[in-house]
Write a protein that binds this DNA or RNA. Structure first.
Lengths: 164, 164
DNA sequence: TATTGTTATACTCTATAACTATA
DNA sequence: TATAGTTATAGAGTATAACAATA
């Protein structure tokens, strides 16, 4: 623990975020996302679902019945990934596969009563985590951030950015 | 491609982002980050470095000489990950390991002249990518977003959030 | 011939454990 | 005894390829 014969002087204290990259958008987005996920997952530990499962449940409960691939496309995950999500949720009785009568290749995935109850509880935890995370920005700042991110994600923007 | 005997009616067009989760902060942060990384990496393809190497070079060039572990801690990556980064950059002559005279366990990692030149070119590409990505928010909106993200990442906030 | 769900497989990124040389 | 760098290894998370059932 002691310092050698030649002292380096006071340590520069490892500033964080490092000044040289603290303004790079990639760095800011990556670490903001990482930090929020940590906060969210630790808040969800006592519950039955994690953050990604919460998103799946929210999507499946919120719209007209969806097939696995429809859900996968809307969450921007691979269909093989969706198989694993539905496997996990179904094994805990939170969703149920039902063959689509009109197209028997498809499974319609329905959220069960237990699933809706888990979702309801998780939503409270998620909303609280978001509130705490955004608190430093004030109420207005938090909403501005959400609006800005939604703008960046809107499809029109996507086409335009890629097209350039 | 044709539709079966029983028509489902007009497809609901797979709205994106899906309304049910379009306001969830985790979803917004994740997909904004993903989309920016895609834009950035495709812009960096013609260059000698990718986005993560750009961050390493920027950090190493911007501050007093750093050891591998100091760099790793500041970028929040594992020291074993930093070994791989330095291996890759050194094999292309962009950085150079030099044993620290005062503590011979350490490698000081120096950016070479070639590394600084690659960094200079990459910085132009990165800044242009950021500008294009943030364009939909206007000049002021882009700066507001950066400021908000910086606020969420500042250490004081971290302690406070975790402590709650 | 194309699509849905599925499985097996591979690849990337990151983290853990153990080793060496230095302190 | 502890730390810096390294290697080998294992674990997420995700994507690709191939297959059966259905359209």
């Amino acid at each position: 623990m002691s310092i050698g014969a030649e002292d380096d002087g006071p340590q520069p204290e490892e500033p964080w975020p490092p000044a040289a990259i603290a303004d790079r958008l990639g760095f800011l987005l990556k670490h903001t996302q990482l930090r929020f996920v940590e906060l969210l997952e630790s808040a969800l530990v006592p519950l039955e679902v994690d953050g990604r499962e919460f998103a799946v449940l929210t999507l499946l409960a919120g719209e007209a019945p969806l097939s696995q691939q429809q859900a996968a496309r809307r969450l921007r995950v691979d269909r093989t990934t969706m198989v694993a999500f539905v496997d996990g949720l179904e094994s805990r009785g939170l969703v149920q596969r039902r063959p689509d009568r009109r197209d028997r290749r498809r499974n319609v995935v329905e959220v069960t009563a237990a699933g809706r109850e888990s979702l309801r509880k998780a939503a409270l935890v998620v909303e609280d985590a978001e509130r705490r995370f955004l608190a430093p920005l004030g109420r207005e700042g938090g909403e501005q951030l959400r609006t800005a991110l939604r703008q960046l994600l809107s499809p029109a923007v996507a086409e335009q950015s890629v097209a350039d």
